[in-house]
Design a protein around this nucleic acid. Sequence first.
DNA 1: ATTTAATAATAGCGAGTCGAAACTATTGCA
DNA 2: TGCAATAGTTTCGACTCGCTATTATTAAAT
Lengths: 183, 183
Amino acid sequence: MNDLSEAQQIRDLIDRLTRLSAAEEWNGPLNPSQFAALSYLARANRYSRAPSHVADYLATTRGTASQTLKALARKSLIDETRSDADKRSIRYDVAPDGLDLLKVPSGLDEVINELPNETSFVLTAGLKALVNAMLLRRDNRSFGLCRTCKHHQGREKGGYCKLLEVELSPVETGQICHEHAAT
Amino acid sequence: MNDLSEAQQIRDLIDRLTRLSAAEEWNGPLNPSQFAALSYLARANRYSRAPSHVADYLATTRGTASQTLKALARKSLIDETRSDADKRSIRYDVAPDGLDLLKVPSGLDEVINELPNETSFVLTAGLKALVNAMLLRRDNRSFGLCRTCKHHQGREKGGYCKLLEVELSPVETGQICHEHAAT
DNA sequence: ATTTAATAATAGCGAGTCGAAACTATTGCA
DNA sequence: TGCAATAGTTTCGACTCGCTATTATTAAAT
């Protein structure tokens, strides 16, 4: 009945949705890339906040990620911290002003919230399947939550990472890790 | 159980999916915006291929759309035709080379095609709901298929548009129209 | 203990997107 | 006839994007 293939239709809907949402973001203080980077940093654990990790998560190059992070730092939304252990690496932490920006719900957020529970449930499942397939295809890291990782061991409070060999606070086990591996 | 709200999770999945797909597009001959514009032109009817229509569909400004279309014309992927009736307006038609580019399936297309039928069905429904809600919110045109419009009247062959008062070929009734209004 | 190689981040380049505002050329209306 | 609305373009400044050096620093191989 449809003239478009199901695939093209879904692709077009995703693209339109993103453009509709992006059009609203351009009216705000941050462009879509800057917002995505800031949002990632706010959810990533302290081992996953380097420019290279942001680049990997956003599926872009280190050069591009570096520029976007510098732009956020210029606006005092994130703070740069050089590592003592490895003097080459840098970690960015979200500053108070950055956290404030993330609190404002976007138009897309509001629209999603009005979806029936059942719809948002199947939507999440479908999108997860697509993202996972794309990650696999491109040989990208999964960037899942610490506590869902195969290196994670539960503790009475928080947890322990067998890979990095560190104790983890309850908050940290709910953060995104670049070393995440599915069970 | 999840630390992220359902809304934020869905938003992040859509954003990641778009970025993953965009990263592949940058390796091709067209950037994401140019590809989206070309794809739209290939599906829109002859009354909906002006710069202003492209701008509206892509949720951007006329200025930006104009630049993207000029870039596509420079690459000989689309042809510019000035209207006789209204000397201000322009219509862009996709050139043979442009059509060839659209035939190549993207990585995201392939991934979508591997989804179970049921999953892609509910995914389409969910995304449609979100897009429609965003369009309503922003007071944007819907850009639906001609034959699903309230101004459309079926004929033995093709159809007739009560708004534009023109006869339509079978192909045209399956194209996107900027005047589309839901029944 | 040195060289050499890998890694982390950045700078600079050219093409292009993005909104906003200024600017033509038409067309429609009063 | 005159002015406002409309269609499209141009220019601007900020920025993204991939790419290719380039600079530190660290790791591995001699």
